[in-house]
Amino acid sequence: MNLTLKIWRQKDRNTTGEFVTCQARNILPDMSFLEMLDVVNEDLTRSGHEPFAFDSDCREGICGTCSLVINGIPHGGQKGATACQLHMRHFRDGQTITVEPWRAKSFPVLRDLVVDRSAFDHIIASGGFVSVNTGGAPDGNALPVGKVDADQAMDAAACIGCGACVAACKNASAMLFVAAKVAHLGLLPQGQSERYQRVVKMVNMMDQEGFGACTATGSCEAVCPKEISLDFIAQLNRDYLVGCLKP
């Protein structure tokens, strides 16, 4: 199949970008969306043009590196999948596809479709951990964790930190990302001692990084490749309230 692409081109962080139109020829339905971009890039390179820069790594939906808004939906709108797991069989021959980077003040574009998501790392560094040094940990079975809690913590911990939640949110809010971490650690007994300090520090860092606030529209949950639930945001809200009011 042949497709028309409208792709964002931007030289670097400090220049303004624009959309350019290019053709994707001889695309096979079995290609992933990123492999389709590979083909486009190979064609561009062979004709002496610069390829489009886009981030990807594992290409099996777990590393969270890919970050494309495809036809207005982060990761392209296939339920529970990242862009690397979106295949071209979901598109029609002759279709026009718009490809944009994540858009948020906290995720500046570095080039074309590549954004800087280090704000997420800063949020984790502010408190998204359990403060245990290596060594001296008690036996793994010393603290039993009920299966329900463990499973729920795992649901939250499944977050891959791709940032699609921010990209989809009309407010560019990072609440789903922060909530997933707060819930993951807050649901486990190991995370209890820092539970309330953690949430306060992480939310304050989130504000400082310039993310918007949550309006609970649910679009983050809809695009999340790991289908993290909005429920976790409510848990965060509760923990933060307790954290701020605790004497």
Partner: peptide, 22 residues
Amino acid sequence: VKIIDQCVAQGVPFAREYGGLL
């Protein structure tokens, strides 16, 4: 043996039995 202990202490959500053990 120590790796599992360390990871559990960090909050790695390993699969659990109903009784709460790993």
